[in-house]
Amino acid sequence: MKIKDISTVTVDNFRTNWVFVIVTLENGIKGYGESTLIGTETAVAPIIGLWAEQLIGQSVLDVTAIQARLQRESYWLTGPVMSAALSALDIALWDAKARALDLPLYALLGGQVRRRVPVYANGWYIGAKTPAEFGEKAKAIIDRGFQALKWDPFGAAYQAMGRAEINRAMDYVAAVRKAIGSDIDMMIEGHGRFNVNTAIEIGRVLEEFKISWFEEPIPPGRPFEMAEVRRAVNVPIAAGERCYSRFDIAALLQAKAVDVLQPDIIHIGGFSEMVLINGLVDSFSLPMVPHNPNGPICHAASMHMAMAWGSMGSLEIMVTDVPWRRQIADEACTFRDGCLEIEERPGLGLTLDLDAAAKYPYQHHALRHFSGKLTNIRPPDAQAWYSVA
């Protein structure tokens, strides 16, 4: 079960780029990993290339030790670029290990606690501009069987919003709540936009809409300021997608800054780090709902965690993606009654068609979050990447 080769391929997906890692063992078994880093993906693959040569000949059974050694010997330990690279490599090593053992990956995480995973919809709003259009699209996605949805109604706002701007944003929230009714979970995304005072003001206005959480109301890396927001509002606070190790998660927990933890396996350090985080979050009796608007490997990895760990709540998914996602990955994923399930296969349960992937090389994409173009994160021909039962 020794490592023979490690390679990468970067694939455009309209919103950003997927950086895929392929670990090949001496017996020909392949494991797949993924990461991304919005706008700076070109920094990720070279780090993996630096590590690859020193890992040849090592046993894939020692994946956790490999991850710890790479962190130690990097000196910097963590950070967005390094953790993105480490995540992709670690996921690929775990996948290869599970395939070598002829086991589904969830078996290495403790075994299956559920087969079907509840999911909530993101990306359902593509192309919507007015409150009425948001309401129509929200109603349409609920009619398809989703029981929860999330979006960012704040346009190009950053740091502060005037009263008129807040009122306009709430018009969108009100339209969606009216369209979907009171029984559907609704989450509001902040993308780390606001200063503390504005976040508190918006959080208080959101209380009347009975939202399930207000996500990243202030920029990441400020757990005590986040805790100040949480104490001042009567809506749950969610954060964690821009955490890069278990220590960042621990800081949020120690500061009592959040009600819902959202680590992203392709940014936090892969399965090796997520195993430690799962126990940490569970010890605080808080739900973990991973950030998951990414590609096929990230989704499969998140599904296996959700199947293995009872502490995980629902799972985020983008309801459509680029049409070539189906060409690249055989995800064997089915949506039914608000849940997703995947076929029982070794490892993550999917393979990548690298010839198909090569047809969609890297393309630079500017960040849309603060330009007012966030609803344009999918191409006109975007389609569901899963089957519907």
Rank of each mutant, 00 (worst) to 15 (best):
8 T>I: 01
19 V>T: 03
22 I>L: 14
22 I>V: 13
39 G>D: 10
42 T>S: 10
43 A>N: 13
53 E>V: 05
57 G>R: 03
58 Q>H: 13
61 L>W: 14
62 D>H: 12
62 D>Q: 12
62 D>I: 03
66 I>K: 07
68 A>W: 10
76 W>R: 07
80 P>I: 01
88 A>L: 05
89 L>R: 07
89 L>N: 07
95 D>V: 01
100 A>P: 09
108 L>N: 04
113 V>R: 04
116 R>N: 05
117 V>P: 10
121 A>W: 04
123 G>I: 00
126 I>M: 15
126 I>A: 15
132 A>L: 06
137 K>M: 03
140 A>C: 01
146 F>K: 01
150 K>D: 04
151 W>R: 03
155 G>I: 11
174 A>Q: 13
184 I>E: 08
205 V>K: 15
216 E>K: 02
233 V>T: 05
242 R>H: 09
253 L>T: 00
253 L>P: 04
258 V>W: 06
269 G>E: 06
272 S>H: 05
274 M>L: 08
279 G>M: 04
287 P>K: 00
289 V>P: 10
293 P>Y: 07
299 H>T: 14
300 A>V: 01
307 M>G: 07
310 G>V: 02
313 G>D: 08
322 V>W: 09
325 R>D: 09
325 R>T: 08
326 R>Y: 11
327 Q>T: 11
349 G>D: 03
353 D>S: 02
357 A>R: 09
359 K>F: 15
363 Q>D: 15
365 H>F: 13
366 A>P: 15
369 H>F: 14
379 P>I: 00
382 A>F: 08
